[in-house]
Design a protein around this nucleic acid. Structure first.
Lengths: 187, 187
DNA sequence: AGCGCATCTTGACGTTGACAAGATCTGGTG
DNA sequence: CACCAGATCTTGTCAACGTCAAGATGCGCT
């Protein structure tokens, strides 16, 4: 935040990620342009390339950042239902991160930092499931994750306009409890 | 499929949508370039603009196409669980359509054809819910839609590699029945 | 036969991602 | 303290893209 910009920005990498998050939150990930981010931050058009290689490198950094935040959030969960609530809540408080995290074609799929961050997240989810459903965590995990992820995605894509203002965690809890998801009665 | 291309293509609109679907299925929606589609189809670089206006117009046409196909599929459903199964199944057999349908920032949100197609789809979903849960279809619908949509999305984004080959409808049925989603016992 | 309009082409402009080569600064070694 | 190696950033360039404007072509209706 200096009036005269020195030759070295000092914290360019972080600044670019922050700028990218703003753009994504406003207009989605495809609106992200390396050149415009550079302009916003006040560096030359090719400066971002040095830190991220290319566009997908930048978005990968955003995704990694997101996975780290999500892990922090999930670590605070007390039980499985709370875990799901926090998952949905994270998606809505960090929509830019969440979108990028689940758009693999935008990312460097095999970047070590990304696979590590993803593995860490998955471990948290599996741990939450295993605590509740020790016998067959696979199917249970799938059910819980699908429900939370679907709710989050539908909310984020504007498909549930009537629920726009609701508390996401509360919503997940309600949906989770709904009798509809119980096994169908024999007919 | 003629050796000499006449001045008028004859079915350019449909051909462009088909080409777009190929590209999307291969590399995602951002990989769609009007110029490359034109090249594939054998017309000049500005021909697509006449039919779709701009890029988002083309993708909107793809989305509308997708909603129509989805409606056709959902109309075949016998009960609610079948409806969900068909939803997930559609997502995996028409991944290109599905992706675009749920990426609002790529579309002309208010295009009449789009809002009509979307309304028609939503009506099918609500009808399926109301048949099972006549009292409070809102929450039940949310639960079922979230579960189906989440499962579909996780499968499509490669987050469930171990389930890659499975039958989607079968998966939905299993997930739907899983006791995890029953109300938690009092503690 | 001929006209109007939808369809398609050609050409141009500004923007972007990516690459290459050079400028500037920083931290550590002598 | 002098100085160098490498990290950081700039400048210049290229092909590709979306979009617009203006012109060419041919279909179908009268």
């Amino acid at each position: 935040m200096r009036s005269q910009r020195p030759y070295h920005h000092g914290d360019l990498r972080r600044a670019l990620v922050a700028a990218a998050l703003e753009v994504i939150a406003a207009d989605g990930p495809n609106a992200v342009s390396l050149r415009e981010l550079a302009r916003r931050v006040g560096v030359s058009h090719a400066a971002p390339a040095h830190h991220f290689g290319d566009r997908s490198g930048l978005l990968t950094a955003v995704a990694v950042d997101g996975y780290r935040l999500l892990v922090d959030e999930l670590d605070r969960a007390t039980d499985l239902r709370d875990l799901g609530g926090r998952y949905v809540s994270f998606a809505l408080t960090h929509p830019a991160h969440f979108q990028v995290m689940f758009r693999p074609e935008l990312l460097d799929r095999d970047a070590p930092a990304l696979v590590a961050a993803r593995a860490e997240t998955r471990e948290r989810l599996e741990r939450g499931i295993a605590a509740r459903e020790p016998d067959d965590p696979r199917l249970g995990g799938l059910a819980a994750w699908s429900l939370a992820h679907g709710l989050a995605t539908l909310l984020l894509t504007g498909n549930l306009p009537s629920l726009e203002g609701s508390d996401p965690a509360e919503l997940f809890r309600a949906v989770c409890t709904h009798p509809l998801l119980r096994p169908e009665p024999e007919r």
